[in-house]
C-alpha cells in the first residue's frame, strides 16, 4: 500500500514539475499512437464500410478473418515489421528501424483490423436501417456508403477510440521496432517496462498511473463529444 501511495506522490510530482524527459515520452506516445490511429482510420473506415455494404462470395470468410485479426499479438506484428524493416529485409534500405516511423507502421498494422472490423459492424447495422430508403431516393452505392459513414460518425468515434486504446497500451510492437532508445523511441509503455526491469518500481508505477490517466482523459474527451451527439439523437 505504501508503494502505491508513494507512486501516486511521485506521479503527481513528475507532472507538477513538468519533467522534460517525461513530457518528451508522453508526447512521443501520443504522437505515435494518434498518427497510427488516424492512418488506420483512413484505411479501416472505407474497408469496413465496403465490407458492410457489399455482397460477394467469400465475404463471410473475410469478415471472420478481420474479426480474428483484431486479436493480433503486438509482438508478432512487431516481429513482422522488424523483419521487413531490418537491414536484411525488403525495406531495409529505408533505414526506418528504431525510428518513430517504424513504431507508427507497427501500430497502424495492429489497429487497422480493429477499426475495419468494428466499422463493418456499425455500418452494417446502419445499412439495415437505411438501405431501402436510400435506394428509394436513388442514391448510388458509393454515395450511400459515404452517407452511412457520415451518419455513423459518432458511433465510429468509439471505434477509433478502441483503436487508440489498443495502440497507446501496447508495448510488444513498439519495443521490437522502436528499441526503447532514450530521447528517440522511448514511449510510456516501453519506459514502464524498462523501469520495472531496473527495479525502479515506484517510477514504473508512477508512469503507469500517468498512462492510465492519459487514456482516461482522451476517452473522456471523445465520450463527451458523443454524449452531445446522443442528445441530438445523431449517435
Amino acid at each position: 500500500m505504501q508503494d502505491f501511495a508513494a507512486a501516486f506522490a511521485l506521479a503527481f510530482g513528475l507532472i507538477a514539475e513538468g519533467d522534460a524527459a517525461l513530457l518528451e515520452i508522453i508526447w512521443l506516445s501520443l504522437r505515435v499512437s494518434v498518427t497510427a490511429v488516424l492512418i488506420a482510420c483512413a484505411f479501416g473506415l472505407p474497408l469496413g464500410a465496403a465490407l458492410a455494404v457489399a455482397r460477394f462470395p467469400g465475404r463471410g470468410a473475410i469478415v471472420t478473418l478481420l474479426n480474428a485479426l483484431m486479436g493480433l499479438p503486438p509482438v508478432v506484428v512487431g516481429l513482422m515489421v522488424y523483419l521487413i524493416l531490418s537491414n536484411a529485409g525488403p525495406l531495409g534500405v529505408l533505414g526506418l528501424l528504431y525510428t518513430p516511423t517504424a513504431m507508427i507502421i507497427a501500430q497502424t498494422l495492429l489497429v487497422t483490423p480493429i477499426v475495419a472490423a468494428l466499422t463493418r459492424q456499425v455500418i452494417e447495422d446502419l445499412h439495415g436501417e437505411y438501405d431501402e430508403q436510400l435506394r428509394s431516393l436513388g442514391v448510388e452505392r458509393l454515395a450511400a456508403t459515404a452517407t452511412l459513414l457520415w451518419d455513423g460518425r459518432y458511433s465510429l468515434l468509439t471505434v477509433a477510440l478502441a483503436g487508440f486504446g489498443r495502440a497507446i497500451a501496447e508495448v510488444g510492437a513498439v519495443m521490437i521496432v522502436g528499441g526503447n532508445i532514450n530521447h528517440v523511441t522511448r514511449v510510456m509503455t516501453t519506459a514502464i517496462a524498462l523501469e520495472t526491469s531496473k527495479g525502479e518500481l515506484g517510477l514504473a508505477l508512477a508512469l503507469g498511473i500517468i498512462l492510465v490517466g492519459l487514456a482516461v482523459f482522451v476517452n473522456g474527451c471523445v465520450m463527451s463529444l458523443r454524449a452531445g451527439a446522443g442528445r441530438a439523437a445523431y449517435a
Partner: peptide, 20 residues
C-alpha cells in the same frame, strides 16, 4: 429499376430519418 425509381418515391411504415 433505377430509371423508374427516379420517377417514384416511397414512404415507409417506420419513417427512416437520417441523422441530421
Amino acid at each position: 429499376g433505377k430509371e423508374t425509381r427516379r420517377r417514384q418515391a416511397m414512404v415507409f411504415q417506420r419513417p427512416v430519418m437520417l441523422r441530421r
